[in-house]
């Protein structure tokens, strides 16, 4: 039985009385070596799980910050294959950190589902998140991931009914529910929706997987607020923006 690092990360954070910190970075932005430094930095600053973003030519769910990072990475020639090789190096440096591949579906389909699962599993990936793979279509990938002991992270949107939340987490292990805070694309927002707390409470009351909220979280204050109602939070664009500006990835106070 392979390690359940995603489950472990949430358990560890919970035992310490805090929410888990899930950090998204676009791999290859600004370069592969720069990404390795950024991964080291976010882990040193307390990230429990790192989402390794795969650059894609048509990032239709992303805001300007992450799109810009993806285009930069593509210019470096970074592909799903190189992201998975990168993941293997991250795994060797950080044996306990949860590692997630965060991708659009086409690069995975193009590689072949079975090959992808094999290579990702060997690289030490714990779970996979696919932006454009909802409940209706995920079956074919899930089987391949499960055989390699990897989890799958479903997205829950503000307009996802609670019954669908339950269906989304059925049969999943070593995963968490990614609660999308707003209807929209990725990117920092000065204010999170007013009904977010009650929505998180409602989801938490039905879910068996840990829940982490993301989209728009750019400050430690927002993160702390969210973690009063969730098991963790995801920061993406705010960290990628730091990298783009040549700074260590971190959240503003």
């Amino acid at each position: 039985m392979s390690r359940q690092r995603i489950t472990e990360a949430f358990a560890r954070a919970g035992a310490e009385g805090r929410g888990a910190f899930v950090a998204y970075l676009t791999v290859g932005h600004p370069t592969l070596e720069g990404s390795m430094a950024a991964v080291d930095d976010v882990i040193a600053s307390g990230a429990d799980i790192v989402e390794l973003g795969v650059p894609f030519s048509d990032p239709f769910a992303d805001g300007g910050t992450i799109r810009g990072a993806a285009y930069e990475a593509l210019k470096q020639g970074v592909t799903l294959k190189s992201v998975l090789a990168f993941a293997g190096r991250v795994r060797a440096r950080h044996p306990d950190t949860g590692l997630v591949v965060f991708s659009y579906y086409n690069p995975i389909v193009s590689m072949g589902l079975e090959t992808f699962a094999e290579v990702a599993g060997n690289a030490g990936i714990d779970a996979v998140l696919v932006v454009d793979l909802p409940l209706e279509e995920r079956g074919e990938l899930l089987g391949h991931l499960a055989r390699r002991g990897m989890g799958f992270i479903p997205l829950v949107a503000p307009n996802t009914p609670l019954a669908r939340v339950s269906a989304s987490e059925e049969g999943l292990a070593n995963s968490f529910l990614y609660i999308v805070t707003v209807k929209g694309i990725t990117g920092a927002r000065s204010e999170l929706p007013g009904d977010l707390s009650s929505r998180l409470d409602a989801i938490r009351s039905v879910s068996h997987l840990p829940i982490a909220a993301g989209f728009g979280i750019s400050t430690k204050r927002q993160a702390a607020e969210v973690c009063r109602h969730a098991d963790g939070f995801v920061a993406g664009s705010a960290l990628v923006k730091c990298v783009a500006e040549g700074r260590k990835p971190c959240l503003a106070p």
Binding site: P134, E136, L155, V156, A157, N159, R164, K183, G184
Partner: peptide
């Protein structure tokens, strides 16, 4: 929703509703 092996609904969760 599908035409043979083609078609489907490969969208972000927010668009499913």
């Amino acid at each position: 929703t599908h035409y043979g092996i083609y078609g489907g609904q490969y969208v972000a969760e927010t668009l499913m509703a």
